[in-house]
């Protein structure tokens, strides 16, 4: 059974996302809505981490030995300005998508196990991921035109 592997993946997905949202909020303190929304969304991911924890105990969390490729590759190097903001939001979007798909996969296992609680948690994660992704898309679309055409 590899469910422990995916519980770790889901857990780590939210952990990475929480960290990344905080990182972006700190990088872009001059964009007030970015700062406050990223802090809010980091909070959601932290709460979801707590929700998945009991299942790590129930099924055993199998620490994944794969290096955390996404986290390593994303947010590389010093970034400032509007282009950096766009890139950072895009990286967050990738992380959020990664976290979401992990929860969708885990939910499939939860269905098979008839584990209602785990189904609920996976559903919650998926729901919050959708909202995170939706905000990221809204925000990227709002600045993309200006950033790619008019910014220096």
């Amino acid at each position: 059974m590899h469910i422990g592997n995916y519980i770790d993946m889901v857990h780590r997905g939210q952990q990475d996302l929480a960290q990344a949202f905080i990182k972006v909020s700190e990088h872009h303190g001059h964009e007030p809505d970015i700062k406050s929304t990223c802090i809010l969304l980091a909070g959601w991911s932290r709460q979801l981490m707590e929700k998945i924890k009991p299942f790590a105990e129930k099924y055993g969390e199998e620490k994944n030995k794969e290096p955390d490729k996404l986290m390593r590759d994303l947010f590389e190097g010093p970034r400032k300005g509007s282009m950096a903001l766009l890139r950072d939001l895009q990286d967050l979007w990738l992380l959020a998508r990664e976290a979401q798909v992990a929860s969708i996969i885990l939910e499939q296992a939860a269905f098979g196990l008839r584990d209602k609680e785990l189904i609920t948690v996976c559903n919650d994660i998926n729901g919050f991921s959708k909202r995170q992704i939706s905000w990221l898309l809204t925000r990227m679309k709002a600045i993309a035109t200006q950033t790619l055409i008019a910014a220096e």
């Binding site: 300005g81 509007s82 679309k141 709002a142 035109t145 200006q146 008019a150 910014a151 220096e152």
Partner: peptide, 20 residues
Amino acid sequence: HWSPPTHAMQIWRYAETGSL
């Protein structure tokens, strides 16, 4: 109409960062 019209606080931010 590719996104909502720019709100005032963002207009001032674009002015601050020089693209406006």
